[in-house]
């Protein structure tokens, strides 16, 4: 589904990703871990198409198609979704209007008409209930004044509404309380199928207890320096990153 080879990316001439290799197949869950500043969010942004970052080298295919020249919205239309580490506040646009616009623009790109209003309402109700989101919340301005946890839950609500093929969750667990973490994780699990894939960026094993990864990768200084199965995450939790950094520099 996603094939990344020797990917280099920089911002203002400063190299941040320094040769990433990553293969994600349908049905898989990949976890990406790594110290602060190692490039995890950058990788997520580059996959989603943020044009601040310049891809200087390497290959990035989504469903066998080169996506490097595509705008973020075109990537979204193909089924890539990024749940932001820091969701942006958009005053003046309600959650509902925003999600309606996002869904209908995605449909438009596929030559479909607007989703009928009653169908939309039903879907909104369903997904909001699944994530235990209060209806009142949906008429508020997007992310404006939301608590950290509310923002994250709202990201997953949008994920649930848009039903992407590839979901990248950038530290969705940070800011969530224990109950919210369980609700959000079970929401993600419900959306999982053999046809879609998830990349989970996290610092903690806690989330991976719920969303169990098939692969765990450690990013350090713009490179994946170690990959393994779910036990690698447990080892990291116990030992920290130093031993991997040492291994990497040897």
């Amino acid at each position: 589904m996603l094939h990344i080879q020797n990917l280099h990316a920089s911002i203002d001439g400063k190299g941040i990703l320094k040769g990433i290799n990553l293969n994600v197949k349908p049905g898989e869950v990949h976890a990406i871990m790594g110290p602060n500043g190692s490039g995890k969010s950058t990788l997520a942004s580059v996959i989603a198409g943020k044009d601040e970052f310049e891809v200087t080298k390497g290959e990035m295919l989504f469903e066998n198609e080169d996506i490097q020249e595509l705008d973020p919205e075109e990537r979204a239309h193909k089924g890539i979704f990024l749940s932001f580490q820091y969701p942006v506040e958009i005053p003046g646009v309600s959650v509902t209007n925003f999600i309606k616009t996002a869904i209908n623009e995605t449909r438009k790109s596929k030559g479909l008409g607007d989703m009928p209003a009653n169908e939309m309402l039903k879907m909104i109700k369903e997904k909001a209930e699944m994530l235990e989101i209060d209806r009142k919340f949906l008429s508020r301005s997007l992310n404006e004044g939301f608590s950290g946890g509310e923002k994250k839950r709202n990201e997953i609500f949008q994920l649930a509404m848009l039903e992407p093929k590839l979901a990248i969750l950038d530290e969705t667990d940070s800011g969530l309380d224990i109950d919210a973490l369980r609700i959000v994780a079970s929401g993600v699990n419900k959306l999982k199928s053999k046809d879609n894939a998830v990349i989970v960026i996290t610092h903690y094993q806690r989330l991976l207890d719920y969303i169990v990864p098939d692969f765990v990768h450690v990013l350090h200084d713009g490179k994946i320096v170690k990959s393994g199965d779910k036990n690698l995450a447990k080892e990291l939790e116990a030992k920290g990153y130093d031993w991997i950094k040492d291994e990497a520099t040897v």
């Binding site: 601040e52 705008d71 973020p72 979204a76 979704f81 969701p87 958009i90 646009v93 301005s141 848009l162």
Partner: peptide
Amino acid sequence: FYLQSRGIPKKEARALLMYA
């Protein structure tokens, strides 16, 4: 970028932000 990454094209995203 946030709006575009949710599938809202550039022109509409601009308009939405201006509306807002």
